[in-house]
Design a protein around this nucleic acid. Sequence first.
DNA 1: GTGCTTGTTTTCACCTCTGAACTAAGATGA
DNA 2: TCATCTTAGTTCAGAGGTGAAAACAAGCAC
Lengths: 394, 394
Amino acid sequence: MARPQRRTVRDIRRGNRAVLLRALYFSGPTSRNDLTARTGLSAATVSTMTAGLLSENIVVEAGQVESDGGRPRVLLRVNPEYGFAVGVDVAETHVRVGLFDLEMTERAKVDYMLRPARHDPELIARHILAGVEVVLSDAGVSPEQVLGIGVGVPGIVEPGADGVIHAKTFGWDGVPLGALLRRGTSLPLYVDNGAKTMGQAELWFGSGRGASDAVIVLLGVGVGATIVADGTTFRGVSSSAGEWGHTKIVANGRPCRCGGRGCLEAYVGIEAILDRAGVTSRGDWEDDLAQVLASKSPVVEETVTYLGVGLANLVNLVNPEKIVIGGWVGIQLGESLLPGIRRATADNSLAEPYAATSIVLGRLGPDAVALGAATLVLEEFLNAPQVARITAAG
Amino acid sequence: MARPQRRTVRDIRRGNRAVLLRALYFSGPTSRNDLTARTGLSAATVSTMTAGLLSENIVVEAGQVESDGGRPRVLLRVNPEYGFAVGVDVAETHVRVGLFDLEMTERAKVDYMLRPARHDPELIARHILAGVEVVLSDAGVSPEQVLGIGVGVPGIVEPGADGVIHAKTFGWDGVPLGALLRRGTSLPLYVDNGAKTMGQAELWFGSGRGASDAVIVLLGVGVGATIVADGTTFRGVSSSAGEWGHTKIVANGRPCRCGGRGCLEAYVGIEAILDRAGVTSRGDWEDDLAQVLASKSPVVEETVTYLGVGLANLVNLVNPEKIVIGGWVGIQLGESLLPGIRRATADNSLAEPYAATSIVLGRLGPDAVALGAATLVLEEFLNAPQVARITAAG
DNA sequence: GTGCTTGTTTTCACCTCTGAACTAAGATGA
DNA sequence: TCATCTTAGTTCAGAGGTGAAAACAAGCAC
């Protein structure tokens, strides 16, 4: 209700600059002329604004295109080397640090394995800080060129500067990872839930591209979702929105590791699938899952049904344009079972919203979490490039 | 992703005017001085802007307040008689038309009973149009003073000017109610789902007041929800978001009138409750429900549990600040069972999001749907008062 | 009446956008 | 070769908006 804040004449410029930069970023190399059409701004404004961006080296020229008998268009694009973003994926078994340029091309990366159940926050913070140094020196990038560090973690991240995390399965309850990292770097930090960073990645660069109302679900050890409403990730009041894995699909059903019963995760999480199929894992879950899928076990069919119910609830409640299934379990299931998943979803949702939704597989693979984390930095950059620069320098 | 549109210097004015008007509307009578603090605008801007609003008679003076030894403050408020809004509630058993002033005080109303299963769209359109004439003449208001007509209907309303409705339980599939009404009036029309208009009413004037992330659930014959994200009602891509009643809480459970199985509505909708309690209704559902509640039937306890599961799924997925329970069934259940409902919700949701949510009863009663429908008009007015005026005159 | 306090209006400098005129750069054809 | 046409991009004057500060208004205290 509150929301619309006052605007001063300066905000216009900032806003329009962001609009222009976004258009430039997502429309690849394009001409000023084209930008006037895309943004709705006048040619005059585009001209002065691009002149500014060019002089700041945020935007560079990228060749020409002849036009029908007239002056050729000069193509412009965002300078991919204007700055870099670090993306970090903190997962159950590893910490991965990647360095990306502004086009989100990975320039360097490094992995640190974690012993299971060895999730000391200090250790992880040290890994991250060390990782940042490693990727920077590997890629020959200096810290001043880095616009920020994005970190994707499991669990719920409190809003606020300290990046306080609650992750039951990780043994973390109130760990201020942001504050820990702050002690070792002065770069801007962005900490967010890993399912959300993955969602962001698929939304911007993967299968969700262009959708403004979408849900990106992550099926892995845990089960989560990113709900995108009107182009922005929906976070809720304490930033935990999208905890799809622990929504109930069978009142009073199977017990779940969260302590509840009948959670979706207790049916379609990897542990639940293997458990229901009677497989005692020898450590390689991917292999185990492949085996279950290859068998004609009725568990497969059931899993599809349960997943369909979970997706159908999203269809009814969120009415998205697109549902993207990601996470390694999701991809592995989807590769062979997508038609069945679609059918099960249709069977359990209302006709109108189902008809408006397309269900597709994610296409960014396992690095999506780190990429999405870096995208948090990119997002900030596109919104206010100059400000990001200043903060990074400070 | 697209979202931020270009801004011109004119948008600033419109936007700031809306900010000012909203502040004035929701802060009751207040002074210019106070408005500068509330809106963040400069005193100069507030002064010129209020001068304009005063001269247009949108805002009027409302007395003075002395200040500590200085010049007294002149209080301002929105002129409640600047214009009026019509709100219509189209329900299973009746069509209700109400006339509201800008303070949302009901000035006149009229009811038309509907024979069950007599839902001819033409008839309903005639009722609405006749109702508008009746309330206007009853209140002595001329059509030029009316800013618009809001209509709340069951089912899914397609986005678009024709107000096309799909309401299975109503026997409507693709009824262009907006277009039917357009033939009989030139006033601006706003058609929306009734659960959403009720939600809007509770959000603006009822128990949800002030919340920016909230869910307002409606329990009645049907079961629905309004999801409010960041102050605005979330609609999804085809405007059907919030179909909570047909989300599944028991995979493969009780059959539902929607054709599916295990829907929430098949457990906590009034028909389901009575059916599960073995009551064969003699027509007065409210009485029947009271009887079930008075009995010590285990159905009551079960209903609370199922409702708790449904609410918990919202808590996990949406992470709202507040959940408002409305609709006559919701109120009747909540009056005696709210603590149990809270407990059942807590049992089925994650601790962090549950802790951030308060669950309360709606307080606007059965007229909330019509009030909310009128609020659609108010919302438009607050966003762009002058434009609404012009349209209304056209 | 004079000073003090607080609320409201006016003045003025500064910003941003746009439309229109203007410049740039190539194609075309006599 | 050069005038003409076409399309791209730049410059400039003007409209409209904001905020800071000064001016004005209206009470109170002495």
